[in-house]
């Protein structure tokens, strides 16, 4: 094969590449994209039904809808954050600015994910217990 390769035999055998985590990010993006197809269809149907007759309280009353809404927001945020990381890495060439944007992006995504999860569960409990 490559006789002048600088890579060790162990690195070749592990096959994890320069970043050290192999195809993990690529694979997670595919897994989440498959999951998002039914989640988006549920989301669109639910939003359409909300705009017609029922309100959000009627939707969030049902535990299955709560789970679907949590999955939609969390899987969606994970998938789109992976995509945003890729975009920043592609187009921001200044090392300092790139690092800053990547950290801010991750903080924003995780903060949004946690806060909206708490809100969804809170909303469900409030409606469900009728308080």
């Amino acid at each position: 094969m490559e006789r002048n390769s600088m890579r060790s035999n162990l690195a070749k055998a592990k096959g994890l590449g320069a970043a050290g985590n192999g195809t993990h990010v690529w694979w997670m993006q595919r897994i989440t994209s498959i999951a998002l197809v039914p989640l988006i269809l549920w989301y669109v149907i639910t939003i359409i039904s909300i705009t017609r007759s029922e309100n959000l309280a009627g939707i969030i009353d049902c535990p299955l809808n709560v789970i679907m809404l949590l999955l939609f927001t969390l899987v969606g945020l994970y998938h789109s954050t992976l995509g945003m990381i890729e975009v920043i890495e592609d187009y921001v060439h200044s090392k300092a600015l790139k690092l800053l944007l990547l950290v801010l992006l991750k903080f924003l995504s995780v903060f949004t994910a946690v806060f909206s999860s708490v809100a969804i569960i809170m909303f469900h409990v409030t409606v469900f217990t009728g308080s």
Binding site: L56, L69, T73, G76, L77, S80, T81, G83, M84, V87, L108, T112, A113, F115, S116, A119, I120, M122, F123, T126
Partner: peptide, 23 residues
């Protein structure tokens, strides 16, 4: 790619909208 970036910000708005109607 463009729609992907747009959807990220759209999802952020949706999440914060959920927070705002809850509280």
């Amino acid at each position: 790619r463009i729609t992907g970036v747009g959807l990220y910000f759209g999802l952020l708005i949706f999440c914060w909208w959920l927070v705002s109607i809850t509280y």
